[in-house]
Amino acid sequence: MNVQAPALQDPRLNRPEPFTPRDGGFFQRDRSIHPPAYAPGYKSSVLRSPRQSLLSIENSVSEITGPVFGHNDLGPLDNDLIRNYAKDGDPVGERIVVHGRVLDETGRGVPNTLVEFWQANAGGRYRHKKDTYLAPIDPNFGGCGRALTDDNGYYYFRTVKPGPYPWRNFVNSWRPAHIHFSVFGSGFAQRLITQMYFEGDPLIPICPILTTIPDKDALDRLVAPLDLNASTPFDSLAYRFDIVLRGQRSTYFENRPEGN
């Protein structure tokens, strides 16, 4: 049986807007809400951050287009992390549903876009050949999944809540519980990877990776609230996580085609 949609999807969906494709450039990215490339509190960024200015280019067809995915790319269990790697039972951990919408900066849902997610298991251990944390692998948990948004930009998946884990930055650095997200949008310039955190986690304000984000509101928007109304009684709690991609203009600037 496939994972069932949460009973409550999105109270705002009773006024769906028709989606009309746009083909202009994307809105200029507001870099002030993103972490800077060089963020010395996150030590790995020091040698991996470009030092020259980025070259700003008007969007051309190379940036406003991007890969198109369909349901043929996915399998029926891809959005069910409780079942998609189960061998002899369910994975250990708190059962949760994560749901939300992929929107653009104008508030429109982004339909039919690929959302991928990956995470540690309930003990904070990743199923990865390079992860050597002492917490055990869960034989019934792979830790990854993916979904296509529906016509309203809505997605959901079922999983277990990931655990926090230590990592080498300072000697006592711990990651708050988090789920990694990869999102495409309609154009390659919207491509985004981010992380979702959980409301109330005391590790959030002291995380060297999370605090690379200079804008407090932008940081708060990565924290998913408990959504009790969308939970499944006697089964799973729910967390809500909306993702916003760059908005797009309707048409090219025909009079200034440089870079188009």
Partner: peptide, 8 residues
Amino acid sequence: YLKETASQ
């Protein structure tokens, strides 16, 4: 306008 989700 909404704000773009921050990268991580």
